[in-house]
Design a protein around this nucleic acid. Structure first.
Lengths: 154, 154
DNA sequence: TTGGGTGCAAAGGCTTTGCATGTGA
DNA sequence: TCACATGCAAAGCCTTTGCACCCAA
């Protein structure tokens, strides 16, 4: 999670990067909101509360940096925004941790942990010779709350 | 596949839409290239060969229309372009047909057919009450050709 | 000291929209 | 005829980039 400031400092230093107020502030916003899928603008707004001087460009640059360092995961819901959340893994390893349930009614996004895809990946390797390193799975449907509301309305 | 012009005319008429030269031309470009993932600009370039008068805006509008009609599937490779391919299903049904293998080395995109996810969807329903209607699966890794080239180089 | 980092504003690049004109039914 | 469709150009919108100033190390 790299909620540990010391780990964060080390990671940056190790890559020849500086530990700035802005970077720490952006990380904090993300660490405090695990599982939320924030756009750059939303992150910007949260950071501005405590650091009004920050620029949107810095948020974009920092998020991209964090993404390269493996600190955040990207999520694209095809609504014109790229979204970010703090990575489940702390290390810069491209682990298997992308399952998102997206409700077509209310737009809510849920996470789901499952490693069933390992079997699929094995089959792909056998049949095509393609080695899977990472995956992104988006499942569209209807969440429990929306289904309950719908059946009540009927 | 709706490679059948008659089906295409019927589908448009049924929705109160007109069968225009442009729409037919764009569909033809897509039908002739199954499994290719074309950007709007690429479709535009192909259509222009035979119909130089067409405008890019028409391509965007038509593709969006086709998407709503279920004639094309969208694919987002996070490179700034939205890509389209003719739908495997002809009907406006959101079927289960999204598995893409994306090579991190050469960028090639392969399709893979598999319904292993049905088991995952059942599990999700049981554990969360979320009903999955459609899914998009992107698997990132290394294709056979790139792996072969790599091992040869070493 | 000094090279990386930041803020601001301008530029980019894909996509959408307004509007006058064109055209299928 | 006439509502829908098209072309062109302008506008939108998210994101990136240029540049002068700033500040961790």
């Amino acid at each position: 999670m790299t909620g540990n400031p010391e780990q964060f400092r080390e990671l940056l230093k190790k890559n020849g990067l500086k530990v700035t107020t802005q970077r720490a502030a952006i990380l904090e916003v993300l660490v405090d909101r695990p599982g939320m899928h924030l756009t750059a603008e939303e992150i910007y707004d949260f950071v501005k509360i405590r650091h009004p001087e920050i620029g949107l460009a810095t948020v974009y640059r920092t998020i991209q940096l964090f993404s390269e360092l493996g600190l955040v995961d990207k999520l694209n819901l095809d609504d014109g925004f790229v979204r970010y959340e703090i990575s489940k893994e702390s290390a810069p390893v491209h682990g298997h941790h992308h399952h998102h349930l997206i409700c077509l009614d209310c737009g809510a996004v849920f996470a789901f942990q499952d490693d069933l895809l390992e079997a699929l990946e094995t089959r792909i390797l056998e049949q095509t010779g393609f080695v899977v390193q990472d995956h992104e799975v988006k499942l569209y449907g209807r969440c429990e709350a929306c289904r309950a509301m719908q059946s009540k309305a009927e």
